[in-house]
Design a protein around this nucleic acid. Structure first.
Lengths: 114, 114
DNA sequence: CCATTGTTTGCATAATTTGCCAAGGATGCC
DNA sequence: GGCATCCTTGGCAAATTATGCAAACAATGG
């Protein structure tokens, strides 16, 4: 990274990717993206981890600018800051499909060879 | 993650995201996405790290199914396995723009308040 | 044989990440 | 006030990851 500008750009992108790079956090974003806002308690139930752990994941996603929270009484609801995040995750789905297809092709070629 | 199926899905996605969640690897993918295939030596030059370090990043991206390599003489060229990866990174760009816009709005609100 | 280009391994160090427990707010109810 | 609920945070230990460096190894091409 000779260029300092490129370095900053790459770091900013990597930060967002890092925020998403965990099964639990992917699951949270997917869930909210499909079903709308959720409170911490429900997420905790569905994830099956300690409340504190879930809360940490949520605050991390919030710090990354992917989620925002809204208090209602004692419960806190988290939601996506932008629909573009759901779109982004759909793009990831395409990558996975392509990867799978590619792996299949490689397997077939290996089996079918003489 | 009560459902085992969801867990696997989330893990698969997180793996790809993790592969990309590093400034150097983001930079590599961006570079190739914009300028086409690159050999290790050129990437090493532009990144400014040890050859072994760059090689490691590349093999990680390859393991994740995002890059493939092609030998030509003694040099090895890496390229994206799929254009959908470039599309995916464009989606990330949208997320960053939205994030920035949101931060700007929050700042304006904070300054403009009475 | 020798140079070039990459890969891999081993190692040491540093930094990051993760998850649970326990303690600490904040809010609402009686 | 007393108490339960919902969530956040600090502390801490374990595991993972990143990096550079050195060295060995492999493949290719004069």
């Amino acid at each position: 990274m000779v260029d300092e500008q490129d370095k900053l750009r790459a770091t900013a992108r990597a930060e967002v990717l890092k925020a998403l790079a965990h099964p639990t956090r992917v699951y949270i974003v997917d869930l909210i993206s499909r079903e709308g806002p959720h409170c911490v308690c429900e997420l905790t139930d569905r994830i099956g981890a300690d409340t504190s752990t879930v809360s940490r994941h949520l605050s991390l996603l919030k710090s990354a600018g992917l989620l925002f929270d809204r208090k209602e009484g004692t419960t806190v609801y988290y939601d996506l800051t932008c629909d573009c995040i759901a779109d982004f995750m759909s793009g990831l789905e395409s990558v996975l499909r392509a990867r799978h297809k590619r792996a299949q092709a490689a397997f077939s070629a290996a089996v079918g060879k003489d």
